[in-house]
């Protein structure tokens, strides 16, 4: 693997970059020397077979692994423009999570109202002014293409929304925190095709403002929505490239086998 090349493939400024990044679940060496550049305000897709470490890598970006004992990061994930190593123990994971939001595989709205769900990130930051919250919630819901559907029922419990609406609510929740990056872990795998299409549309809009890193099992989806794609296998980043190139002319045999469905 030619390590230096990955970053030079990207023509835009970098928002983040992993360097010789390793991750361990206890003794399980789940990520090996990953060098992944993340282009600013672009969509970077992580693809690869089940268990190859996509979620592990994604969850390293917002220090989710800190929540469980025995996990260990090694190497760097640099966040730009301030150029900090966000997995360094000296960096506060809470600050990182306020800058880097996440949308999960299964919609996970809180047992609260629609309004409170979206306002959650602001409330966590100590924002209490009703007018500010209202403004931000509306903006985020509009950003997540959910405003028209829920504007008259903001005080309803979020559980009452459909699966697709719940996922858009989770996106609104992430957006309301004004994140620099949003991490998506297979955000449409629990949704039907119509809801999936609306989430994909949304991602295309959001990327105007926010850098996006997305894990997907769906190759068509990666091809449709991403600008850059990273193919992972057994904890390693096998190939990174512009999406239009990687899917048409993969450089590695493994990548080709995977994207043509001839895997394993």
């Amino acid at each position: 693997m030619s390590e230096q090349n990955n970053a030079t493939i990207v023509s835009e400024p970098l928002k983040a970059e992993t360097r010789k990044f390793n991750f361990y679940y206890g003794d399980n060496h789940a990520l090996k020397n990953v060098d992944l550049p993340v282009a600013e305000r672009m969509v970077t897709a992580l693809i690869g077979p089940s268990g190859c470490g996509k979620s592990t890598l994604l969850r390293s970006f917002n220090r989710m692994h800190d929540l469980y004992p025995g996990n260990r990061y090694e190497g760097e994930i640099r966040l730009y423009p301030d150029d900090v190593n966000l997995v360094s123990p000296a960096v506060d994971p809470i600050e990182i999570r306020m800058r880097i939001s996440m949308v999960f595989q299964k919609p996970n709205p809180f047992p609260k109202t629609i309004f409170e769900n979206v306002a959650y990130g602001l409330m966590v930051r100590g924002e209490k002014r009703r007018s500010v919250l209202e403004e931000k919630v509306e903006e985020a819901l509009r950003g997540a293409a959910l405003w028209e559907e829920v504007k008259d029922r903001l005080d309803d419990l979020a559980f009452n929304l459909s699966g697709g609406q719940q996922q858009r609510l989770c996106i609104a929740r992430a957006l309301a925190a004004d994140p620099e990056i949003i991490l998506f872990d297979e955000p449409t795998s629990a949704l039907d095709p119509i809801a999936t299409a609306s989430i994909e549309e949304l991602i295309a809009e959001i990327k105007e403002k926010v850098t996006i890193l997305i894990v997907t099992h769906n190759m068509q989806q990666a091809a449709r929505i991403s600008d850059y794609t990273a193919f992972m296998y057994l904890g390693e980043l096998v190939e990174f490239g512009r999406t239009d190139e990687l899917f048409v002319r993969p450089r590695k045999k493994q990548t080709e086998d995977y994207i043509t469905g001839r895997f394993g």
């Binding site: 989710m64 809470i94 600050e95 999570r97 999960f104 299964k106 996970n108 047992p111 992430a174 925190a177």
Partner: peptide, 13 residues
């Protein structure tokens, strides 16, 4: 756990 993770991911303590 997914609910807690959702909260932590928003920067909650």
């Amino acid at each position: 756990m997914a609910l807690r993770e959702g909260s932590y991911a928003m920067g909650a303590t």
